[in-house]
């Protein structure tokens, strides 16, 4: 990798004649993106970090409060604790389900059978429907009195109107909506596994289960890593469905971290406090990513 760009640069330098142009070229290429990135991503992120250290209602000058927002959040705000717990529960259930179901669907629809393309399209279709539509439709499907789900089960489960079931309702809708995405990522991973490996395994006398264990799983590890990372990031940031289906209720039963950020910043207009919660969410994601990357590296070492 290191060789090519250098050759390229040398070639460019020679042909363009002017050294300065050659040196400026890479910057010109990245500049448009960097400008937009600075203005609309990095800049606002850093500003958000700054706002989290203030007490600010957007009007007037921000009042510096140091880490007091974080102190209040972690030590006194019981609602924050509830939001954190709900987010963890949601993720701990959703992530494995989405991973296992996505993988199973991918294995299933990777079989050389007629009609598998139809299956793939069907499973992926929910994902192209926008999340707020998913929320509206599932609110109706989960209706306690006239909903489709309760009509089939024959039990009037109070899906979105009880603390016990509300989060489960959101999880159902989310799994339905996103499992197709994971399936497609796994399908791609499966198709990258060379057929020879399976043949070799077969010659060694491995049955289907063993082939899965010793060929598919290890070869799928990189895909698994990506899918896991994406699913975790998305799970921790769940908002749309919650906003549309329950707004965090009943009580605080489906209040997630992002919904709580929305509440504090945009319903209570406490922008400093809302930003502080967002910073904590960021820290959580970083910690998860570090742990996961470590585990992944260790796993790779174990395999090789």
């Amino acid at each position: 990798m290191a060789v090519l760009p250098q050759t390229a640069r040398r070639a460019a330098g020679i042909k363009d004649g002017a050294r300065t142009t050659a040196r400026a070229t890479p910057y010109l290429f990245v500049l448009p993106y960097i400008l937009v990135f600075l203005l609309f991503r990095l800049g606002p992120s850093l500003a958000g970090l700054g706002i989290s250290l203030t007490n600010w209602q957007a009007v007037g000058s921000p009042q510096w409060v140091g880490l007091r927002n974080f102190e209040a959040m972690l030590l006194r705000d019981t609602v924050f604790g509830v939001a954190l717990r709900n987010t963890l529960v949601f993720s701990v259930i959703t992530v494995p389900v989405l991973l296992v179901m996505g993988l199973m669907l991918a294995l299933f629809l990777n079989q050389r059978m007629r009609g598998r393309a139809v299956g793939r399209v069907a499973v992926f279709t929910p994902y192209v429907v926008m999340s707020t539509v998913v929320g509206v439709v599932w609110t109706w499907i989960l209706d306690k009195d006239f909903g489709l789900l309760n009509a089939y089960t024959g039990v009037a489960t109070p899906w979105l109107v009880s603390e016990r079931f509300a989060l489960a309702g959101i999880i159902l809708a989310t799994v339905w909506w996103t499992v197709g995405y994971n399936m497609v990522l796994f399908l791609a991973g499966l198709q990258d596994i060379p057929e020879e490996l399976y043949e070799a395994a077969r010659i060694d006398g491995a049955n289907t289960v063993n082939a899965f264990r010793f060929v598919t799983l290890p070869m799928l590890a990189p895909t698994m890593f990506v899918v896991l990372m994406l699913t975790i990031i998305n799970s921790f940031q769940i908002f749309d469905q919650v906003y549309v289906m329950t707004s965090g209720g009943p009580g605080t039963a489906t209040l997630t971290l992002v919904q709580y950020i929305y509440t504090q910043s945009f319903q209570y207009q406490k922008f400093g406090y809302g930003s502080a919660i967002a910073v904590v969410l960021f820290l959580i994601l970083v910690v998860v990513a570090i742990f996961q990357t470590r585990a992944y590296r260790r796993g790779l070492e174990g395999v090789s």
Binding site: S162, S247, G248, P250, Y260, T263
Partner: peptide
Amino acid sequence: FNEIFAANAPSPMNVMGQRIILE
């Protein structure tokens, strides 16, 4: 007002009402 009475938010009044009526 909002922090105490906000509708469609986990404000104390809303949480109290939903817990009493639904639970």
